[in-house]
């Protein structure tokens, strides 16, 4: 990631697609769980990177070099998701994939997870998704959410505990049927 920040600082346009390639899967997967909506997550992921690019264009090289990329992009992504930003109309959209009859890859048990997430308080849901789906460290989550790292730790462990009990309850209900 540090190498990437260096490359972005020396040639933003050349290196930016590499940044997208290396972070898009984590950002998309996290947003997919946070929003419960595949297309929404796709739009928001794009929007977050486009905003990141525009911001970087205004930064001097030293500032870009100092950015901790994953946390920084996630801060933008959560903002975009929170404000439910819609894409501007003045934007070309790719056609290749539609024509190829492309089907998106859905994560497993989508419906079950969409339901489970609604049973968690917002802070726990966000912390668990950032930690265990998007793969952020506690420190990164703390920077992204503005909550102390110790609080993030307890959000994650409480969230996991809650999910376990939700899943146990689901299993019991299944067995009763």
């Amino acid at each position: 990631m540090d190498d990437l920040a260096d490359s972005l600082a020396s040639d933003l346009d050349e290196a930016f697609p590499d940044l997208v390639s290396s972070l898009q899967h984590g950002i998309f997967s996290g947003l997919r769980q946070l929003t419960g909506d595949h297309h929404r997550a796709e739009d928001l992921t794009q929007e977050a990177f486009i905003r990141a690019y525009r911001a970087m264009r205004t930064y001097p090289a030293e500032r870009i070099r100092a950015i901790r990329l994953r946390g920084w992009i996630w801060t933008i992504a959560l903002n975009v998701a929170r404000n439910d930003v819609r894409a501007e109309s003045r934007r070309p959209t790719p056609t290749r994939l539609e024509e190829a009859g492309y089907l998106p890859e859905e994560p497993p048990d989508s419906e079950a997870w969409n339901r489970r997430w609604t049973l968690l308080p917002a802070a726990q849901r966000r912390a668990v998704i950032l930690r265990h789906v998007a793969g952020l460290s506690y420190q990164e989550i703390s920077e992204v959410t503005g909550r102390p790292a110790t609080t993030v730790r307890s959000d994650v462990s409480r969230g996991l505990a809650r999910l376990r009990s939700v899943i146990v309850r689901e299993t019991n209900e299944e067995e009763r049927k």
């Binding site: 997208v20 899967h25 998309f28 796709e42 992921t45 794009q46 990177f49 790719p94 890859e105």
Partner: peptide, 27 residues
Amino acid sequence: TLEKELERLSVPAPTGVLDGVVLGTGL
């Protein structure tokens, strides 16, 4: 484990994301 199950929710971003970003930024 629950943690493993959560990891499985990490999937590839749709292929159109990168194209959408390079078009949207004007790259």
